[in-house]
Design a protein around this nucleic acid. Sequence first.
DNA 1: CTGTTAGCGCCTTCAC
DNA 2: GTGAAGGCGCTAACAG
Lengths: 339, 339
Amino acid sequence: MKSITIKDVAKKAGVSPSTVSRVISKDTRISENTKNKVLEIMEELNYYPNSIARRLANKKTDTIGVVMPYGTEDILMNPFFQESLRGISIVSSDKCYDILICTSHKNEDEIDVLRCLIKGNKVDGLILTRSNEHDEAIKYLRDNKFPFVLIGSCLEYDDITSVDNDNEKASYELTSFLIEKGRKKIAFIGGELYSVVIKNRFEGYKDALKDNNIEFKDEYLIFDKFLEESGYKLTDKLLNLDDVPDAIIVADDLMSLGAMKKIKERNYKVPEGIMLASFNNSILAKYSNPSITSIDINSTELGKRACEKLFSILEGNENELKKEIISHKIIERESTKTI
Amino acid sequence: MKSITIKDVAKKAGVSPSTVSRVISKDTRISENTKNKVLEIMEELNYYPNSIARRLANKKTDTIGVVMPYGTEDILMNPFFQESLRGISIVSSDKCYDILICTSHKNEDEIDVLRCLIKGNKVDGLILTRSNEHDEAIKYLRDNKFPFVLIGSCLEYDDITSVDNDNEKASYELTSFLIEKGRKKIAFIGGELYSVVIKNRFEGYKDALKDNNIEFKDEYLIFDKFLEESGYKLTDKLLNLDDVPDAIIVADDLMSLGAMKKIKERNYKVPEGIMLASFNNSILAKYSNPSITSIDINSTELGKRACEKLFSILEGNENELKKEIISHKIIERESTKTI
DNA sequence: CTGTTAGCGCCTTCAC
DNA sequence: GTGAAGGCGCTAACAG
């Protein structure tokens, strides 16, 4: 089916293609008469500009890419990504931008995916939804001076535009919160060790222990993947220790469900025997039993602000704050309630 | 930053642009020598074809659009969409297709969004993730003969390619399951009444009652939005009835969490006093307390098959099954356990 | 204000 | 096998 073009409209309206083009791009210097005439014909012909052709001529795609974490098979199921994507979507649809979802499954190299996106002119800018230590993706984008915003923090460069929580502080607060509840044997279950967010949360935990003169114990610190199953397995190890912890901080809600399951299986009581506290405050934490105290990180807001910053960059406003911090809040629930 | 083009490669390789183009599109009738030479230069120049230009010339975008439900502010948070998107993503990345996320927030008209997508040549095909009665989007796409696959079912036309569960049967089974457990006062909490999936699930429920000679009671049937909060409110109404139900089927996990919350608040026991059973088997059902019996609808598989069918259509294989059914399974949990 | 011209970068006949 | 030429649909100077 032959789609109708700007030429068809022009011919029928008795004007030149460029006049039609001007109407489309809302050029001011054009008479009301011809404008209305053209609009009328456009309506009549049910014409709609071919965005591909516009993109080629404008060298602009009106599309932003959202890069989901590598190896997304399971991790992508974390509600965090859904929530931040929602924030991104709200902002970008306001600007009439499209969203391209970028994932690298299986054997593909993440850098190849990025290369294809930016060299192929598929997107105007990117939002990364996570960061690792020595992050290759960040390095690649930075080296190529490609516009992007990071949801998370970058350890290597301080010229990266990013939106993040103060995870170190949040973790410090959460740890202190447990200490105030009288707990001293506090373990920490993390996700991937190379992930920056985990590093931050771990640091905050360690600092809080130190400031409260509690000795940090190596065996109270374990890491694995951001999966429910990992939480389950790691907790088992903690419960096998000679000196079983009386509180556990888990770096993610999904993992904490696994932890909770194991704790119950082993017949420990939450919160009496072991207190549990977690991060992200997804709906999972709210409906767990007992419900889990969790840090609300404002995922949707992270997405929104990241997207707004990206637009700001694309519009050339370089005076934006490089690193923006989104507030967090401890949501206390049963898993840490003192009776 | 000037991006390098096919011409640059051609010049440096001492061949014509068309030759380079042939190398890119893996044309066979080309000598090994020139091919290698060109590939070498491409590598050296770090050349990557401009996909926008290719799209314009080929009239093909290598992109599929995934249409999220209208008014997505909250509904989009349902894990179902995340899971089916994952399935779609796995298949499309195999084919090197990009995924465009399409949402219509706020005041926009969904049809406008679709119009913009297809008239604007932004995607080769679409996947709809839900269907309503008298669905305008389906009608529009069908009228325009635009390639698309529906996750769900269409009531009006039987020439729509779709992937769905047998929701009627599933609901019939779930209702029968509760009846076998000795329950007779079974209520049904649905989501949006105009949604096809709700209609199907309601029909199955009604049929099961009928086949078991249980009278259908109007006051046991209530509908609202696909939200946790709706489940909460609707359940309150059920518990206020003179004849309180002894079992409730909820059309969605998220809603059933709300229902569970209310049931507990009102001091009814699950499953002893009231059994609860639900649909979708998201992680929410598993970790609720008590855990909730739910129909596993295979969300990821729905996404995968929908995407495969779309590719099949795009490749011109019109001999595909129009309506494909994905299997379901009752996952029994505490909320319906008889002691 | 409006039309003409020349691309955007790639692909695809059609010749050789 | 390879090159030249024209076109995909739109935009952006440059004229007038």
